[in-house]
Nucleic acid binder design. Structure first.
Lengths: 206, 206, 206, 206
DNA sequence: GATGAATGAGTTTTCATTCAT
DNA sequence: GATGAATGAAAACTCATTCAT
């Protein structure tokens, strides 16, 4: 069996085990067994547990970013809200379809020290860039001019992405919640909030 | 030295090590050393690594819920937005003050299998209950009548809490972001969003 | 059983295994078993295979140097030839009594890379210093004045020590050769050679 | 490329790796890579690591013995001292020219258990035979009659060879010491010693 | 003649956990 | 109440060796 194929099988197995057991609790023995190969072959192809995990993280991060990019892109040319909606739907669909991959990214990589946390941060930065540009675009479409300071937009994007991540966990854990419903709830809320802020209906602690 | 005090010292040490290394990577040796006691004593008082971790999770969860409850309670009698604001501020202040405890709850316990995930879910449920009741109260104050279906309120609360958690990580990781600023951004956004939804300015995919 | 005693047992076992199998071929399992303890205890006390080997080398080197020093010292006050003879006899007696220790020093440590080779080199330097000073003393006693250039003395000392090491291997391998006989042969030869050189009866390639 | 050539390349690579890393630490992977062939080919030609090492030892031992034989032979017909000098020079020149081969013979094979130690012993026996016969010849030339008992001659030869081996290591390790200088120092010393013994100027413990 | 693909067996090392005192 | 001494079990990783092509 050619190397490239075997490698993907190993990554599949590794994502599943890492996602379910966690990085430290996952054993190379179990991964090799699930992949249907011997341990030395895993080491021959992927060098070490750390590199194997890194390869998983990179693959899953790229897949997720691609999915979101495609979701947004499918509505390119339409208004910002449709593009955001496309991205959200794609995000929830992807995390629902690959729960182990999502667990690796969101549940494991973030907490396993620098090389991996950085990789996840880079992925999140890509998504944040999408969201940020869509917020700015929405503001332009609504008022022709961004009224929100850049720093606040960054915070909003972060909040939106955080909410989405949390809802993805929710939808993955609770079978009665569909990705579509989660996306709709979040979109309605977010769009209302954005609109309100742009029209000056924010809240003031005083 | 009385047992209760020793136990708290052990928990302090354990939270610090668990929070920084992760559950699996943390070693009982290191925890005992940091606590300044011998390993057998840790076992005498806390029985096993699993129980020790459970005790950490329970203590930190209770402390966080207490902090939020107090933050909300300090504005009891005032309007729902002030109470939500009080809870948010307390949440961000607490996570900033006890980053290791927050790492144990948010970064570790959630991904370490049933007994702990359940404990964290219970804690989050308490916080969600607060938030849900405040959203309902806000709706009453605004229209005398909750216009939002229960299911949507649950989703909104979840989104709000998820956003808060994500912003807490952000504020912990990026020193230039204060808890207060994160809280204010989120509050402005959330309140505008809630108000918009209540007034029927939501977004519709069609 | 107190730690210090256990440690010596472990070193005894390790010297035996390292000496017979070689550094790489020796297994920590076998060492622990011969020492009558579990492997983790070996690691608890001696940290790693490398450190364990280092401890063996240091112990055996010190023992050998001490033996030679004592052999030389027992004839202190007497003439240089008696002192050299004392050192040689002690050297052969020691290597015959502790063949595994000698194998560790001469057969293994020298070829196992820097930290160990350096340790053996230091030991040999001590012995070389003895021999060198005895050669110089002999020259003084014979002629009141060292006629041999320093560089040649260094080479002679080296040759003498090398011959002794080789004869020690020989005596260890061939039971019919006693340490005393080896020492006597070498001493007769060396003393005749030294005397000849000092009296100008050396050999010239031309 | 013909088999014989390929085989020599493999042996070249193996001698280099074995000499530098040691028998156990050397890996067949590294040897195959350095030889520029695939591992199965190494096995096809040389069967196993053990046989490969054996082939290295035999080749290097033969080369060394040949070199010494040639060195001695170049002075055949001359007096014994010239022949010994020729052998010594050749020995030091050869070990300096092929340090890895010398390391395999002197540093590794001797300590790797029976098959190899025996091979090295056989090589040394050949060299010892040269030296022994030269000592006897020298005695004849000087007195017409060997005054030294056979057993002592064996010891002397051994000491001489041991000294030479040790000086070869020295010259290999310390660049400021040339093979020629080492050979001269040893030759002067040895010849003076031999002459002294033959003339009854030995040393007596009493 | 030559190799890419693959593995069984063994290595060093770590860790949660328990006694005897 | 507290600890020094000790270990069973398992982890990551390596290596000599073999097939199918």
């Amino acid at each position: 069996m050619p190397r490239a194929v075997r490698e993907q099988q190993m990554l599949d197995a590794a994502v599943r085990i890492f996602g379910r057991r966690g990085y430290r609790a996952a054993s190379m023995d179990e991964i090799a067994e699930l992949a249907g190969v011997s341990k030395p072959l895993v080491y021959l192809y992927l060098n070490s547990k750390e590199e194997l995990f890194g390869a998983c993280v990179r693959r899953e991060a790229a897949a997720l970013v691609d999915a979101v990019r495609e979701g947004v892109g499918a509505a390119s040319g339409e208004r910002a809200d449709r593009q955001l909606w496309g991205g959200l739907r794609a995000f929830f669909a992807h995390t629902a379809e690959r729960p182990d991959g999502w667990a690796v990214l969101h549940g494991q990589a973030r907490t396993q020290g620098e090389p991996f946390a950085a990789e996840v941060a880079a992925m999140r930065a890509e998504v944040l860039a999408f969201v940020t540009s869509l917020i700015v675009a929405a503001a332009r479409e609504a008022h022709g001019d961004p009224l929100l300071p850049e720093r606040e937009v960054a915070g909003l994007a972060r909040a939106l992405v955080g909410a989405a991540e949390s809802l993805a966990d929710w939808a993955n854990a609770d079978a009665s919640v569909s990705g579509k419903e989660a996306a709709a709830t979040l979109m309605r809320f977010a769009w209302a909030g954005l609109g309100g802020l742009l029209e000056g209906r924010g809240w003031d602690p005083a």
